[in-house]
Design a binder for these strands. Structure first.
Length: 584
RNA sequence: GCCGCUGUGGCUUAGAGGUAUAGCAUCUGAUUCGUAACCAGAAGGUCGGGGGUUCAAAUCCCUCCAGCGGCUCCA
């Protein structure tokens, strides 16, 4: 596709969708200004999957406005206006925008570098300050839909005025648009908040905003994840500990959390002394390390903790299990010598890879560097950042760099998993920390008999077990593999004549370590199957007179494969036990 | 926190100033049935909380609470 660049040239564009979406944003702004004269424009970029434009309009927009705007946009597309571009001198641009009352655009021009070329794009009566590139004609915007209205601060700063943002999506063809909208529908069906309710996994109540309740079935899923985690960490020579939920404020002053994280911490008074509900497990882990003397021979020392933390997140940011105020980390703190850094990082990266692969996730890695408002010296930060970088390079892992997104005590490697719908979520992280060992003055005795300072890694694999569960629910759409399924088998009797045998079958399965539920209600078999299907139980065993007569067989129905025919109960048990043990 | 929208029995939902809809789930009875919903009946709601307007409020107004979308993508 050819695009119009702001030097006036027409060239093949690199990113067709981006050009279409950016032009769609202009078409939308044009439609809005036609329908609601006096509406001021802020910014309107192309984004992933679509575009938005921020408007300053008295009274904002209501949902019905979207239809009107969409209709006007279709008109503009049909008019097939030609896009033109031209530049203005700085002062002319400011004067022009001022004359039109576009105060936000004026501000944008004022903040542009002195030597910047100030370009405008024009289509019909509509003119917008813009760097382009854009489509040649408005008809390029042929497949679009406005999706939502939202508030957004001018320049993303909450001290500024709240503007009205309209989001839309735009594609190169009607088919792609349809496909995208279908994907959105599918994502909605898989929403973990919806499935969590339907499958009886967890609940969030008004009485505890951001504090999830786990229901019996959710608890099975959660414990199964923890069992798997424990097995791996035992194998990898981690030592599991548990540290208190509430600790004296002095600890948090020393760790630096009080300075850097105070607004997110809950506190409580104990005997007139401020105590903090832990928002992180690290200070506790350090106290455990400090509890005794250590030799270099013990290093690396890997202390793991299934640690529940509480953080005050702003009410508007809460979201199901993805963003909560109480969650449990599969945490570990590794204390080591500087020489051990590369191997330890590599070990964690391999472990993360093993776990994510087990769940069928693809993932990508990001390296986050020093943020503003961080503690420690430049040298330490550089050393730590290079340590992470070289570990990743040595492993040959590809990664993106996220400048300024590190923790306040050190740089980090983040793992972003991609679910079955192609969305990504940050889960695992490895953080290198030179600060806390200093602050707590921890050390080990080296081969030279002298004290040395260990280096510390903070790492999680699931991240938050709660969030990971939410991701798993959406990733599998509630259809968990057998080893994770809260109920693995439902035994369904056809009629009263098979109640007794059904009960025996269920008892045998239970004894074999299978999570089984017996359905001996006086309902038709079709009804029982429907309910088991809706609950997404992997296996259903239909028990009727045929099975009773033989006395050793069951008829198997699979959640995804339907009727599997009749097999020996012992064979079924052996197969499902293997499936569960292999965690496939 | 901020902006916008929403809030009706456990769940999904009708209702837009005049006595609270329906389906699913629940309970009771009947049915004994072979791969996604058998039939009949019953019970269940101070319409998110509080305040106001009105002869009369689920419905209009104020306020608080909660949920949802967004506030990161920078002409």
């Amino acid at each position: 596709m050819k695009a119009l660049y702001n030097d006036g040239s027409v060239n093949e564009c690199e990113d067709e969708l981006k050009v279409i979406r950016h032009t769609a944003a202009h078409v939308m702004a044009q439609a809005v200004q036609r329908l609601y004269p006096g509406t001021k424009l802020a910014i309107g970029p192309a984004i992933e999957d679509g575009f938005y434009y921020d408007f300053d309009k008295e009274g904002g927009f209501v949902p019905e406005d979207l239809e009107k705007i969409e209709a006007e946009m279709k008109k503009i597309v049909k008019e097939n206006l030609k896009l033109e571009t031209y530049t203005m001198s700085r002062q002319d641009a400011i004067d022009y925008l001022k004359s039109k009352g576009e105060i936000y655009k004026v501000q944008l021009v004022v903040e542009l570098p002195q030597d910047a070329s100030i370009s405008f794009y024009k289509q019909g009566e509509f003119v917008d300050l813009c760097a382009g590139p854009h489509a040649l004609y408005t008809k390029a915007v042929k497949a679009f839909k406005l999706t939502s209205i939202a508030g957004a601060y001018w320049r993303g700063d909450e001290k500024n005025k709240m503007l009205s943002r309209i989001y839309g999506t735009a594609w190169e063809s009607k088919e792609s648009l349809e496909k995208y909208l279908t994907m959105l529908e599918e994502a909605k069906k898989r929403d973990h908040r919806k499935l969590g309710k339907e499958l009886g996994l967890f609940a969030i109540m008004e009485e505890g905003q951001g504090f999830p309740f786990y229901l019996p079935k959710g608890m099975i899923l959660r414990n199964t994840l923890i069992d798997y985690w424990r097995e791996l960490h035992t194998r990898e020579n981690y030592h599991e500990i548990s540290t208190p939920m509430i600790l004296d404020q002095q600890l948090w002053l020393r760790s630096g959390h009080w300075d850097h994280y105070k607004e997110n911490m809950y506190t409580t008074m104990i005997d007139d002394q401020i105590h903090c509900i832990k928002p992180m497990n690290c200070p506790g882990g350090i106290l455990v390390y400090k509890n005794e003397n250590h030799s270099y021979k013990e290093l690396p020392l890997r202390l793991a903790e299934i640690g529940t933390v509480h953080r005050h997140e702003r009410s508007g940011t809460l979201h199901g299990l993805f963003r909560v105020r109480c969650f449990t980390q599969d945490d570990a703190h590794i204390f080591m010598t500087p020489e051990q850094i590369p191997d330890e990082i590599a070990g964690v990266v391999r472990l993360v890879d093993e776990v994510y692969t087990k769940f069928g996730f693809n993932y990508h890695i990001e390296l986050s560097t020093r943020p503003e408002n961080s503690m420690g010296s430049d040298e330490d930060w550089e050393l730590a950042t290079n340590g992470l970088r070289s570990a990743l390079d040595k492993l040959g892992k590809e990664y993106a760099v996220n400048e300024g997104d590190g923790a306040f005590y050190g740089p980090k490697i983040d793992f972003h998993v991609e679910d079955s719908l192609g969305r990504t979520w940050q889960c695992g992280t490895i953080q290198l920390d030179f600060q806390l060992p200093q602050r707590f003055d921890i050390n080990y005795i080296g081969a030279d008999g002298e004290k040395h300072r260990p280096i510390m890694i903070h790492r999680v694999i699931y991240g938050s077990i709660d969030r990971f569960m939410g991701i798993l629910i959406e990733h599998f759409g509630g259809k968990f593999p057998t080893w994770l399924a809260p109920v693995q088998v439902r035994v369904l009797s056809v009629s009263e004549k098979s109640f007794d045998y059904a009960e025996q079958v269920a008892a045998k399965l239970k004894a074999a370590g299978v999570r089984v539920k017996l359905d001996n209600r006086g309902e038709k078999i079709g009804y029982k199957i429907r309910e088991a299907q809706l609950q997404k139980v992997p296996y259903m065993l239909v028990i009727g007179e045929n099975e009773v007569q033989d006395g050793t067989v069951v008829t198997v129905r699979k959640r995804d494969g339907g009727d599997q025919g009749t097999v020996k109960l012992d064979d079924f048990i052996a197969d499902i036990q293997k499936e569960i043990a292999d965690r496939v």
